[in-house]
Nucleic acid binder design. Structure first.
Lengths: 325, 325
DNA sequence: GCATCTTGTTTGTCTAGGACAAATCTGGAT
DNA sequence: ATCCAGATTTGTCCTAGACAAACAAGATGC
């Protein structure tokens, strides 16, 4: 007798792989995580965790009564730090070999001590105090003051980076980050939704390839474009290549914006871009975001690389200067 | 020389496990998917896919030059249908044993032929045509006409269910569903954001346990509560139990709303609820959503079960009738 | 008849160790 | 400096087996 479900859960099942066990996420056992829970928390595949244990001797989880791996919280935190450094280009072999001192040095160095606006600093505090309402209104106030463009470029992005760093350092709970993401999303989506579309602006389709999550980054780009009147349609993250192609053809878009994080292999990115570019309606452009792509870009007809968020606006300017229609 | 990343990707890495391979998602090879891609698309673990192949003889992927599994699109679609029926309580053994006729019958039966408003029917069409702008304004119009509460209860929820069913039937691409989720999110978040908070209303914290994705459902609940003036704070999906506890204590919330989909094992849900209820500030309530929980609820002090979305509003009424402060 | 306990079956996830191709680093030649 | 060949690192996939939790069915008691 199947009991029917209340509401669909698929939109995320697609994007993430919704697992169904109970063991890996058993909510008891305070500081101890199963291998599946660690996979979820760190983004490292089970296979990778096991092979690291064999090759490098870390992590070194305990075992429960059934001989299954049990990871103490501190090891998971270390794994997160390692993951973060790897995302920045370091290789695991070096990281595991590094002395504790060197490792710490790398970590500190990685925390872009970039100029973080004083207000952003204050918001880190609000976040750590879980002061949701205060955070909400503070963000809103900043947005009012700075305007959408400056807010995104000079406030939201540095703040997001700082939060990522604080999280890797273990100074922030998962809940804090969720709270931040929610508030920021609410604010930006509401703002974007209310913006007028300027005539003569391009119609832009935004998304990422499969295996690209990174949803806040995409939202930032959308906000920048929309603030200049572009007609944006986002598919969120993780759209299969074939689907992007079809949607782009149907929708009559002028621009397809793809965002890539550092973790996405450049080879695959270029290969996908080539395929996408191959059967593009004439006049349609592709904008590919992601710093590591812009470093040594493959020359593909119809593809433009954006080295940073700010480049998005330059591309838009150029589009206006020479509309391909 | 680490190349630094533009923007943080963590908020989703947390929630999903961001993988880093290239093979599983190689964007070439039109109708053929690697095992990792199938895991992402169907939500079935690699291990499960392999063990099904051995035990039931399905799926039966091809092999590439390296002996690695390659799944044709049609098998993946079948897997999605199976997954959907399993979410409704069917067991795999029966499904694999069923004759094609019986299987088809189950599928049809599962597609809640529930009364779908004519306008919703029309929107399914818009979605399938990828008419993003038309969809956007149509949704907006519906929302204006019906008001937030009716819109959610009698329009958005049935529509979401219908979309889930169409997707399982293979009539809908991933992109269509992404498009829908995005538009709906934009609309609801913008609306919620603009709602006033009524004095004397409870402060509600919304989230789900780890392994619970289901973000649109949570957003629906938030919309309903907010439409009646409640002060809602959402953490999104997938918050670790410990984090929920801490946030709830800090934030001075009156209610914690947890949402569970059918795929979440009831045992684990009750166990988690008990832990959470144990050290709750006096006067704080827990509302647990999810039909399968309400069927045979474990009696836990401070926990109220919501059998359906509409129950959310009843609970709110009761709260107002007898404020626990 | 309805509830509770016991047993047998189904099912998902974990374990182990081995293999290999893609990505990266290294040194040599232009 | 730039480019190519070879060596090394590294992530993911493979097989095969084991076991506990979830479930179904039958037995027992009220």
């Amino acid at each position: 007798m199947p009991s029917s479900r209340l509401s669909p859960r698929r939109e995320l099942a697609t994007a993430t792989g919704d697992q169904r066990s109970s063991a890996e996420t058993r909510p008891d056992a305070p500081g101890l995580l199963s291998i599946a829970a660690v996979e979820r928390d760190t983004g490292l595949l089970k296979d990778t965790l096991r092979v690291w244990e064999k090759r490098y001797g870390f992590p070194q989880p305990l075992r429960d009564a059934n001989g299954e791996r049990i990871y103490p919280r501190e090891q998971v935190e270390r794994l997160r730090q390692i993951r973060r450094l790897m995302d920045q280009g370091h290789r695991p072999g070096k990281l595991f070999a590094a002395s504790p001192t060197d490792f710490a040095a790398l970590l500190v160095q990685s925390d872009a001590p970039a100029a973080l606006p004083a207000e952003a600093q204050r918001m880190l505090g609000l976040l750590q105090a879980s002061a949701a309402d205060a955070l909400r209104s503070a963000l809103q106030e900043r947005l009012q003051t700075l305007g959408l463009e400056d807010f995104v470029l000079h406030f939201a992005i540095p703040l997001s980076i700082a939060i990522g760093a604080a999280w890797a350092r273990g100074e922030m709970e998962v809940a804090h980050e969720h709270l931040y993401t929610e508030q920021m999303q609410n604010l930006l989506r509401a703002t974007i939704n209310a913006l007028p579309i300027r005539a003569g602006s391009p119609r832009v389709l935004l998304t990422t390839f499969p295996n690209e999550l990174h949803s806040l980054g995409l939202l930032f780009a959308q906000a920048l474009l929309a603030s200049h009147g572009a007609a944006c349609t986002s598919l969120g993250a993780q759209t299969p290549l074939e689907d992007i192609r079809k949607t782009a053809q149907n929708g009559g878009f002028d621009v397809i914006l793809l965002s890539f994080s550092g973790a996405f292999p450049a080879r695959a990115a270029f290969s996908g871009l080539r395929i996408l570019a191959a059967d593009l309606a004439p006049g349609t452009q592709i904008w590919a975001g992601g710093r590591h792509l812009a470093d040594k870009p493959a020359v593909i007809d119809g593809v433009r690389y954006l080295a940073g968020m700010a480049d998005t606006l330059l591309a838009l300017q150029d589009w206006h200067a020479t509309p391909p229609s």
